[in-house]
């Protein structure tokens, strides 16, 4: 069989048929490309343009006014504040969880891996409700919190908690496969060379997971800025106090202030675009460092 097929390659007509057999016909290729491009245009590019058009429809002055109005500024400040707390928390958690899963053997490891994915699986609204049940005035810990004059629900701590919960998987999931693939030999080599645990982490582990970690932070950041459902449940939507950017946009929209809603949206979108741009650079860097590690 093999000799026969090898012999046949010399025949140009057969060779051409072979080539056709391994590549798709033109009409199929163009249909597939066409479908994906028009889908992209319809569901991604068009909305982007609509947001930009809506935001700047009445000129730059209106746009500036909309995003410098006190409630909008408060929402922006709150969103950034929450991100500044949530991202570091999830960096610590993500690195710790990935380290534990990739480098140690312990009971319940597979359960931990499954649990890390839970925030993705649960609807954000349900997440919000869980924390209301836990910390709300009628909730399990409510009376104790009230007695100690602590407010979690309808306050900033509640927002931080639900966003931290929702964005928990991003960094851990990014790092687990990376660290598993790298194994622990380099860390062991560092230890035998006299470096302690902290120096080993700083000089050996961290540089090796650097790009994966940055990628995880970017995803975590994007998601933390955009989180809506769970925040809507726990924040109480107090204007100028517990409204994050997405909540503020919804308030404006419900009050028929479309231009202002679009203006704040364009800001959020701008942040998202910057994030995506950084993400592409990071991906390109990761690819490059991976390739240079592979070349013998």
């Amino acid at each position: 069989m093999t000799t026969q097929t090898l012999g046949n390659v010399a025949n140009p007509a057969l060779a051409a048929r072979w080539r056709r057999a391994t590549s798709e016909p033109d009409w199929l290729r163009w249909t597939l490309i066409g479908i994906s491009l028009s889908f992209l245009a319809l569901f991604l590019i068009l909305p982007l343009l609509v947001v930009l058009y809506g935001a700047f429809e009445q000129g730059l002055a209106v746009w500036t006014a909309a995003i410098t109005e006190p409630d909008a500024l408060a929402a922006i400040r709150l969103s950034l504040f929450v991100v500044a707390i949530v991202v570091p928390i999830n960096v610590v958690f993500g690195v710790a969880a990935a380290w534990a899963i990739a480098k140690f053997e312990f009971r319940g490891k597979s359960i931990l891996i499954t649990l890390i994915d839970m925030p993705f699986a649960i609807s954000p609204v349900v997440v919000g409700l869980i924390f209301v049940i836990l910390f709300g005035t009628q909730g399990w810990l409510g009376p104790w919190l009230a007695a100690h004059d602590l407010r979690i629900i309808f306050a900033v701590p509640g927002i931080v908690i639900v966003i931290a919960f929702g964005t928990m998987p991003f960094i851990a999931r990014e790092l687990i496969p990376l660290m598993q693939q790298q194994g622990k030999e380099e860390e062991e080599a560092s230890l035998t060379l006299g470096a302690g645990g902290w120096k080993t982490f700083w000089y050996v582990t961290l540089p090796n997971i650097k790009w994966g970690l940055i990628y995880g932070i970017i995803l975590c950041n994007a998601r933390a800025l955009g989180e809506f459902g769970a925040v809507a449940v726990v924040s109480g939507r107090i204007r100028g106090e517990t409204n994050t950017m997405p909540l503020h946009i919804e308030v404006l929209y419900n009050e028929y202030m479309f231009t202002a809603a679009f203006a704040v949206s364009s800001l959020l979108m701008g942040l998202a675009l910057v994030t995506v741009a950084i993400k592409s650079v990071v991906e390109w860097q990761t690819e490059r460092s991976r390739r240079s590690a592979d070349t013998p």
Binding site: E185, E186, A189, S289
Partner: peptide, 20 residues
């Protein structure tokens, strides 16, 4: 004694050089 205090040199099968 912790590994880092034992003063041993260890050579691994797959080298374990620091890639970066």
């Amino acid at each position: 004694l912790h590994v880092s205090d034992r003063g041993v040199g260890f050579v691994f099968q797959h080298y374990a050089l620091f890639k970066h």
